[in-house]
Computed example of a mutant assay.
Amino acid sequence: MTRVYLSTDPQADELLTDDRFALLVGMLLDQQVPMETAFTGPKKLVDRLDTFSASAIAALDPDELLAAFKETPAVHRFPGSMATRVQAMAQAVVDDYDGNAEAIWTASATDSNPPTGKEVLRRLKALPGFGDQKAKIFLALLGKQFGLQAEGWREAAGDYGPEDAFRSIADVVDEASLARVRETKKALKAAAKKSK
C-alpha cells in the first residue's frame, strides 16, 4: 500500500498508513481544525507518550493524556474535550473490539460473514465522537484508500462514496486533491449560506 497523504507530514502519514488506531484518532480529531492538523495529532501523541495503542490510551491517567494534548504545539485547539473523547473512544475499542481498531471494519458480523458497509457504518457511529457525517467520511476513507471490501460501503458512505466526490479527507491523495476538497467545501458552505 502506498503511503496516505492526510497530514502532509511524511512521518505522520506513515503512522496513519500503518496504524489503524492512529488513523481512527486522526479522524476523531478532524473537527474545528484544518484536516492536516487533525491527522498530525496521532504522531504528536506517539512522540509524547510512552506507548500509543487503544489499550494504553484507555488505561492512561486522564491528566497525563491532557498534558500530552496541551504540549506545544497542541494536538488540537480544544485539548481538554478532545483528550476526553480520544480516551472514551480508546475505551470503546478496548471494550468492544479487544483493543483492535481494525476489527471495527473487519470482524465478522453474523454467521462469520464479513461486515457490510451498512454494518461498518453502524459500528463507527457507535464510537464516542463519531456522528453520522464523520462515520460516513471515515467509511469512505477506508474504502477509497485502505482497500475496504465491505459490500455496499459506497452506498453507506452516502455523498462521500462516489469516486470523484472531492468532498472530504477520503478524497485527499496529494496537494491537488486537497485543494479540490477545499474548493468543494467552500462551495457547499456558500450554497448553504445562500439558501438560508
Rank of each mutant, 00 (worst) to 15 (best):
R77E: 11
V120M: 03
D9T: 09
F78N: 05
Q87P: 01
P73Q: 05
K136W: 06
L60T: 08
D47E: 15
A107T: 14
M27T: 15
V93D: 05
L124V: 12
P73S: 10
E183N: 02
Q149L: 13
D50G: 15
S112N: 15
R77P: 09
G117T: 11
E163V: 11
P115C: 04
P114G: 14
P115F: 06
Q32G: 00
V120H: 06
I104T: 09
D61V: 00
E151G: 02
G99K: 02
K189V: 13
K43P: 00
A107I: 12
A58H: 11
V173F: 10
V86I: 13
D164N: 12
Q32I: 03
P62G: 02
L60A: 11
L23M: 09
F138N: 04
M1Q: 09
V172M: 06
A83T: 09
M35K: 01
G147V: 13
K125S: 06
I137E: 14
A83E: 11
M1I: 09
E163K: 12
L139G: 10
L141V: 14
L23R: 08
L139S: 11
A179N: 11
A56P: 00
P42K: 03
E175L: 06
W153D: 05
F138W: 09
M89P: 01
E64L: 12
G131A: 04
A192Y: 12
T2P: 14
Y97K: 00
G152W: 12
E163S: 12
G158P: 07
M82V: 05
K196R: 15
P162C: 07
K185L: 15
A83L: 10
T84V: 12
S81F: 06
L15R: 03
G131S: 08
S177C: 09
K136Q: 15
D95S: 08
A187C: 03
